[in-house]
Design a protein around this nucleic acid. Structure first.
Length: 421
DNA sequence: TTATATGATTCGAC
DNA sequence: GTCGAATCATATAA
């Protein structure tokens, strides 16, 4: 930077009556030192920063305030930062009420910060002017060097910048507190509604052999859940929440299969009832509409139900007739699929773990299924797929699953599982 | 108040 | 990027 022209060592003394008149450049230089932020930078005057390297702490605070949208340009900074902060905190379009509240509070902080900052700057300018006036008064009685002026101005600046630092510090703290209160997801954890949990559980247990929903499936589930939830609580479930839910579910299920046995049975029974209704409808439909239609496909369809793969049927039947949770290899269960087939072909069932209600539902389903012509074909195919699920090392294996497996609860246009895992 | 359930986050592996 | 695993923090049941 070009060095400024040397200042007459007692220019105040020379320009006693009017500083601006006699030495305008020098006065401008002093003003620039006093108010670097407000004075025109076009003069290339040495500023306070050149003398004092920027304080790293101050820089951190400035950066943070800028990132949080407290300082910096006015144009939507606050709300943009709020949105960014919300996204960073893992939130999304849900709990928008809380986010708008957050934005409002952040705007308040921003306003207070700028008001205080202006006050400080004004006070700093006023005080500096006051000191300058005092120096001018003194210059009548003794020569005052520019160095002395600089020193005085420096002292004033340091004082005020430390106050400013405190202001920035407390503003940052306020933002942090606000952030943690409003945007920290852990703080505002809410249990999903019963309906949402049921939807997720239904999907999980009907895809027990491969409980890894694809992105589309997650979206679909999120949509389904949000529809249900919005009728009650008023919040939605996001795709990432669905992912979290499945992640937690998988790990907790695997950790304690026994604990989830009852739940698995419950949802298996639920699926069975749906299947029974669908099958009944299909049978009725085939009898009334097209009695000659072959049933080789073993399809039981309604609006949201379809059984069109051996694997799906295997899972369903295994669930029902053994009381097992899907197609997991449970301890001492042996070849569940084979046993269940044996049971099914005979008159007795081995679903001892399944409660009386489930048993009656099983009976219903058995009755309905027995009316379906393609049933024996389905059983024949069934033996081709050994039940798979949790492998010996604890992972979900994907041995013989056809890539196009559709779950029992799936229909055309419904949620498809991700078999890529 | 305590125990348990549950949604979210973090971290390392892939 | 997703995943499992561990963990945290809160909600809820006992």
């Amino acid at each position: 930077m070009a060095r400024r022209a040397p200042i007459c060592h007692n220019y105040l003394a020379q320009g006693r009556n009017d500083i601006g008149e006699t030495t305008p450049i020098e006065y401008a230089q002093v003003l620039a030192m006093i108010m670097p932020s407000t004075f025109s930078p076009g003069l290339s005057i040495r500023g306070a920063q050149e003398e004092d390297p920027p304080d790293p702490q101050l820089m951190r605070l400035d950066n943070m305030l800028l990132a949080e949208g407290v300082s910096g340009p006015e144009k939507g900074g606050g709300s943009a930062a709020a949105a960014a902060a919300a996204a960073a905190a893992g939130g999304a379009a849900d709990n928008s009420i809380e986010h708008s509240d957050y934005r409002a509070k952040l705007t308040q902080i921003r306003q207070i910060y700028h008001t205080e900052l202006e006050k400080y700057e004004q006070a700093c300018n006023e005080f500096t002017t006051h000191v300058m006036n005092l120096l001018r008064e003194q210059s009548r009685t003794r020569p005052i060097s520019p160095k002395e002026i600089e020193r005085m101005v420096g002292i004033i600046h340091r004082k005020f910048s430390s106050i400013q630092m405190q202001l920035k510090q407390s503003t940052c703290e306020a933002v942090m507190i606000l952030r943690s209160r409003f945007l920290d997801a852990r703080r505002k954890r809410r249990n999903f509604s019963k309906q949402a949990t049921e939807i997720l559980n239904e999907y999980f247990y009907s895809h027990l052999s491969n409980p890894y929903p694809s992105e589309e499936a997650k979206e679909e589930l999120a949509k389904k859940c949000s529809i249900t939830v919005s009728q009650g609580v008023g919040s939605t479930i996001t795709v990432s929440q669905v992912s979290n839910w499945f992640g937690n579910k998988r790990i907790r299920y695997k950790k304690n299969i026994g604990k989830f046995q009852e739940e698995a049975n419950l949802y298996a029974a639920k699926t069975a009832v749906t299947a029974a209704h669908a099958a009944a409808a299909a049978v009725q439909n085939s009898q009334t509409n097209s009695p000659t239609t072959p049933n080789s496909g073993f399809q039981m369809k309604d609006e949201e139900f379809q059984l069109d793969s051996a694997e799906s049927k295997n899972t369903l039947l295994t669930n029902m007739f053994t009381g097992s949770s899907g197609s997991f290899n449970l301890p001492n269960s042996g070849d569940i699929g084979f046993l269940s087939m044996q049971s099914l072909n005979g008159d007795s069932y081995q679903g001892a773990q399944v409660g009386a209600n489930v048993q009656s539902q099983v009976d219903t389903l058995r009755h309905v299924i027995s009316q379906t012509a393609g049933y024996s074909d389905a059983l024949a195919v069934n033996t081709m797929y050994s039940p798979h699920g949790l492998s010996a090392n604890g992972g979900w294996q994907d041995a013989t699953t056809p890539s196009s497996v559709i779950s029992p609860t799936e229909g055309p246009g419904s949620v498809h599982s991700d078999t890529s895992n």
